[in-house]
């Protein structure tokens, strides 16, 4: 197994907006071994099980985790300070298969943007036309727009309240992209967000069977190592483990 159990020291933890935090630590091993779409299983005080977080980006030996406060674990993690110790198992899971196609379209639903920045870091090295679609509730919630622009991505935004970009969802933006001839010819789609978003994407892309669409799933997890079968999701081929068979699946294997 490539994964190791490693103790790391929180280097920085910064509030990005009301609910989202950016945490970083230094680990040569995790920085070198992590691939876009991999996750880290982190032990947080006050929870019994570890919590999975995708690798947000890697800069040199620094590893970044971007997370939203949603429950007890993430709330506690947001209260960690610089210098605190974290017990991490990683890198884990099957990540994105970054293919050199003419065009890559990244689809981020809310905090699902987290692993896509790492993917964008890698995709910019492959000479393709890169687009990212960001979906959020409101303008103030939009994350990582600047970074994608720095990586040479064309950024489109959708907000539910219409305060920035298109009023609507990120899948509405995707549908618009799909209607262009360029997109239909040679495109890979990479997405992370809620399951409902993936279902809408499935409806939108099923008319284009040649488009490869990879999606990173989220599920409550036990071990993260493929031993407890706690995180299984339903696929066309039966239950699959998000931690080991995923978290990245081909959308066509789900519905």
């Amino acid at each position: 197994m490539r994964a190791k159990q490693i103790e790391v020291i929180v280097g920085e933890i910064k509030k990005v907006n009301k609910e989202v935090f950016l945490l970083s630590f230094t680990s040569s091993y995790l920085a070198k071994e992590s691939r876009p779409g991999n996750f880290l299983h982190i032990k947080i005080n006050s929870t019994l099980l570890r919590r999975p977080f995708s690798v947000h980006k890697v800069c040199g030996r620094k590893v970044f985790v971007l997370f939203k406060v949603r429950g007890r674990g993430t709330n506690m993690l947001s209260k960690y300070n610089k210098g605190d110790t974290l017990d991490v198992i990683g890198p884990l899971g099957k990540g994105f298969d970054a293919r050199p196609q003419k065009q890559s379209v990244l689809v981020a639903g809310g905090i699902g943007v987290a692993p896509l920045v790492f993917l964008a870091q890698r995709l910019k090295k492959i000479k393709t036309k890169n687009i990212v679609l960001l979906g959020e509730r409101s303008k103030k919630d939009i994350l990582c727009e600047k970074e994608f622009k720095q990586f040479g991505f064309k950024v489109y935004v959708a907000t539910e309240d219409g305060s920035k970009g298109t009023k609507g969802t990120v899948v509405d933006l995707l549908k618009r992209q799909l209607s262009t001839i360029n997109c239909q010819l040679s495109t890979n789609i990479y997405a992370c967000g809620p399951k409902e978003m993936f279902f809408k994407m499935h409806e939108a892309v099923k008319a284009y069977p040649d488009i490869n669409c990879q999606v990173s799933f989220e599920q409550f997890m036990g071990c993260g190592l493929g031993i407890c079968c706690g995180c299984s999701i339903e696929t066309k081929a039966g239950y699959k483990k998000v931690c080991k068979d995923g978290p990245v699946f081909n959308l066509g294997d789900i519905w």
Binding site: L48, R72, Q219, F220, M221, C228, C229, G230, S232, Y239
Partner: peptide, 20 residues
């Protein structure tokens, strides 16, 4: 055996409920 419908695991903070 396919196992039960997900979600299958819940962390109560001091224990784990599973329905694998």
């Amino acid at each position: 055996k396919a196992g039960n419908a997900p979600p299958r695991i819940f962390d109560s903070g001091c224990g784990v409920i599973n329905s694998v």
